[in-house]
Design a protein around this nucleic acid. Sequence first.
DNA 1: TGCGAATCTGATATAACGTCAGATTTTCCG
DNA 2: CGGAAAATCTGACGTTATATCAGATTCGCA
Lengths: 214, 214
Amino acid sequence: MAARKPQDQTGRTLGPRALQTRQRLLEATEALLDQRSVREIRVVEIARKVGTSPATFYQYFRDVEEAILQLVEQAAEDLPAIVERMEGPWQGGRGLDTARAISDAFVRHWDTHGAVLRVRNLKAEEGDRAFRRVRQAALAPVVERLARVVEEHQKAGKVSQEISAWAAGSSIIAMLERMSSYHAMFERAGVTRAQLVETCARILHQTVTGRQVA
Amino acid sequence: MAARKPQDQTGRTLGPRALQTRQRLLEATEALLDQRSVREIRVVEIARKVGTSPATFYQYFRDVEEAILQLVEQAAEDLPAIVERMEGPWQGGRGLDTARAISDAFVRHWDTHGAVLRVRNLKAEEGDRAFRRVRQAALAPVVERLARVVEEHQKAGKVSQEISAWAAGSSIIAMLERMSSYHAMFERAGVTRAQLVETCARILHQTVTGRQVA
DNA sequence: TGCGAATCTGATATAACGTCAGATTTTCCG
DNA sequence: CGGAAAATCTGACGTTATATCAGATTCGCA
């Protein structure tokens, strides 16, 4: 469980100078990802931005995807904070607050790491094993937590037995992720971020508890 | 509104031979997109697959994205069929059937055009104008139809006024799209396609009507 | 048949990839 | 402090892809 130490391509662990270079390369990659399509990311350009040569990049990463994979892992470090919010209560009006906290946390997570998460999901959908694994690792706790809430409400007869708790959890996460990545587009269409968070929170709440709040 | 006739890069409209070549290039692009990451699509390879030269490709498309954009437009031609299903009734048990039809239609649409739609959404999220436009054109009728159903149920007091009808429609579509693109992954985790469709249908139904069906 | 239009492609300049041998910088021991 | 060894970086290069254009090829039809 200890964070693996970064290595170079020949497997040697890195000293402080190397670590710094590597981190700079990662930051440059993320910055470029914010302004260019993932299809246009060039190793040369990443290197240029750091003031180093392409050969240096290849010392630390097999290719651009590997660098992005590292960024995805760094982004995943914020997630425990989101999972914590999910431990809130689900009864009555409090449940809606819990749902709002989750919805808001997702939007914020995507505001910070959107470009990187977008590539994570792309590669995962394209079937890339490594990206699937990190996506799975990041979201499974969230999905499972939601699924458990659904199951509890199913036992209490509040939610239909025809629903698969796990599929429901996944669906909600799917919705939150995509809406988070789209919310900038909505603002242009006159839907504020707050409305979006509120709407998603209510769908989430209603789905997992079966209850509607006026 | 008439389908614009395909042109080559100098604006000339195409004869039958050219049209066939162009279509072959598009098909090769789609086939390649099914097996390689979008980051790895190469014009040379598309050309090779058709048994022609890269120069021919550039006669018809500015670059790979333009070819994909054409594929996206072709894929969008199936959509009216989905929109039709949404005209079904929303009262009582019938509502759930309508929801199921929509959910199922989405999954089928993605089964057929997944690779292309994935790129459409990627480029749209990356901010590409053209891809945003076609995505918008394809999904707006669906979103608007759902939003109208939500509004009707809000007027009848069944759905909370705190929800933004348009955001709700978008959220549901977001969920359906992503779940459709993921369903293969779920099957590995023991959730069948049928369960997925049913679960999404119920979330959709409950969200737009405020009602739950046992 | 042969001409003009339509279509295709070889050749090429430009640019990125990815590797490796060797240069440069840092560390640290005597 | 001096200098060798370890760590880190990079110039140079063979390979592959992009994107363009002039000219070759193919087609329809008078």
